[in-house]
Each structure stands twice: as C-alpha cells, then as structure tokens.
Simulated assay, not measured.
Amino acid sequence: MVSICEIVQQALATGHLTVEAENQLRLLLQTTKYGSEEFNAFMALQKSAMAGLVRQESRHLKEPPHLCASSCSNI
C-alpha cells in the first residue's frame, strides 16, 4: 500500500488530489500508526489545498453547475 508521504508528494507535484488518493489517505489515517513525518506531510497537503495550490477532485464533483447560461444570455 502507498504511504501518506507518497500520496502527498504526488498531490503536491501535480496540484491535484484524486478521489482515490483521498480515500487512501482517509484509510491510512484511520488504520495505521503514523509518525511526525506523515503528520507533517498531511498538514502540508491540507494547507496547500486551502491555499488553492492543490485541487481536490471530490470537491469539484460536488459543485453545482454554473447558472451562467440563463443569467449571461443578456450580455
């Protein structure tokens, strides 16, 4: 299984966190004992996501469609 640090490194390198990687992280955080290196990597990922440097695929799947078609037709 992939480690927390590997998932974080890939997300930071690509700027994208897939749903699969997010689920792997969730499972790893719940079922494994992790040290300060893994915790710090996870916190760096959280900060990057909050700053918009990493895009979470799961958040974009839940976004409602834009309503521009009806509101922008008069432009």
Results as ranks from 00 to 15, higher is better:
Phe42Arg: 05
Leu45His: 08
Thr14Trp: 05
Thr31Lys: 11
Leu25Arg: 07
Glu63Tyr: 13
Thr32His: 11
Ser58Trp: 13
Lys47Phe: 06
Ala21His: 15
Gln24Ser: 08
Phe39Arg: 10
Lys47Asn: 10
Asn74Glu: 09
Gly52Glu: 00
Cys72Val: 06
Ser71Glu: 12
Asn23Gly: 07
Glu63Leu: 15
Gly15Asn: 07
Met43Thr: 11
Leu67Thr: 01
Glu22Phe: 10
Ala44Phe: 02
Glu37His: 13
Ser70Ala: 09
Glu57Phe: 04
Met43Pro: 07
Thr31Leu: 12
Val8Ala: 02
Gln24His: 10
His16Met: 11
Leu53Arg: 10
Leu25Tyr: 09
Gly52Asn: 03
Lys33Met: 13
Lys47Tyr: 04
Thr32Ile: 03
Leu25Val: 04
Leu12Tyr: 10
Thr31Tyr: 09
Lys62Val: 03
Gln56Leu: 15
Glu38Tyr: 00
Arg55Gly: 00
Leu53Trp: 04
Ser36Asn: 12
Val2Leu: 09
Ala13Lys: 15
Ala21Thr: 01
Gly52Ser: 05
Arg26Ser: 13
Leu12Asn: 12
Leu28Tyr: 01
Cys5Asp: 09
Ser70Gly: 02
Gln9Ala: 15
Gln30Cys: 02
Ala21Arg: 09
Arg26Asp: 08
Leu12Glu: 14
Leu27Val: 12
Thr18Arg: 08
Cys5Ser: 14
Ala44Leu: 11
Val2His: 05
Gly35Met: 12
Ser70Glu: 06
Leu29Val: 14
Thr18Leu: 11
Pro64Gln: 03
Phe39Lys: 11
His16Glu: 03
Ile4Met: 01
Ser70Ile: 13
Leu25Met: 11
Gly35Val: 14
Gln56Val: 14
Thr14Asn: 06
Leu53Phe: 09
Phe42Ser: 05
Ala21Trp: 07
Ser71Trp: 14
Gln30Val: 02
Cys5Phe: 00
Ala21Pro: 10
Glu22Tyr: 07
Glu63Ala: 15
Val54Ser: 10
Pro64Trp: 00
Ile4Pro: 01
Lys33Asn: 14
Gln56Gly: 02
Leu27Trp: 08
Ala13Gln: 15
Leu67Ala: 06
Leu17Thr: 09
Leu45Ser: 05
Thr18Ile: 09
His16Tyr: 15
Ala44Trp: 00
Asn74Lys: 07
Gln24Cys: 10
His66Glu: 02
Val19Lys: 06
Ala21Gly: 07
Ala21Tyr: 07
His16Ala: 02
Glu57Pro: 05
Val2Thr: 10
Leu53Thr: 03
Leu29Arg: 03
Leu17Met: 10
Met43His: 10
Leu67Cys: 10
Ala49Gln: 00
Lys62Glu: 02
Gln56Ser: 06
Lys33Phe: 13
Ala69Val: 14
Phe42Ile: 00
Ala21Leu: 03
Pro65Asn: 00
